[in-house]
Amino acid sequence: MYEIAKENIDIQSVIDKVVQREAGAITTFIGTVRELTKGKKTLFLVYEAYESMAVKKLEQIGTEIKERWEGAEVAITHRVGRLDITDIAVVIAVSTPHRADAYEANRYAIERIKEIVPIWKKEHWEDGQEWIGNQLETVSYPTGKPEEGDLNE
């Protein structure tokens, strides 16, 4: 249900993992590589993961979702390696008995990925390249870890 992929992600195969008879809704989030960020043109991205831990953290996000939204099923695949503009970086599928939960839980999953899953992107521009921390470095971790609530359950 939780994977780091080195090749193109097949969207339908992620969706298929959350199909269940109890579900009334499946939401799918597809994260793609954007060309312009604040006017700066990206040529391509390279994603890198601490793969074994990243899979564990994706599983943790799934567990958190199932605790918060009853009856939810979750599948997440995140790509690593070189990605060109418009390529798919992440696919999240969530199924729940009712649609409101499927939307909310899916949003929760992508926000949590950006907080706790050890995956990094390196932006390549015409005039250089840089590993991106959290955008604008607005978040730091003075205690050396995500704050209360970001840790296990």
Partner: peptide, 15 residues
Amino acid sequence: LDTAMTAINEEFAPN
């Protein structure tokens, strides 16, 4: 390094 998190055996660990 002050902005880096740390994991011990694949789990986040405090300072």
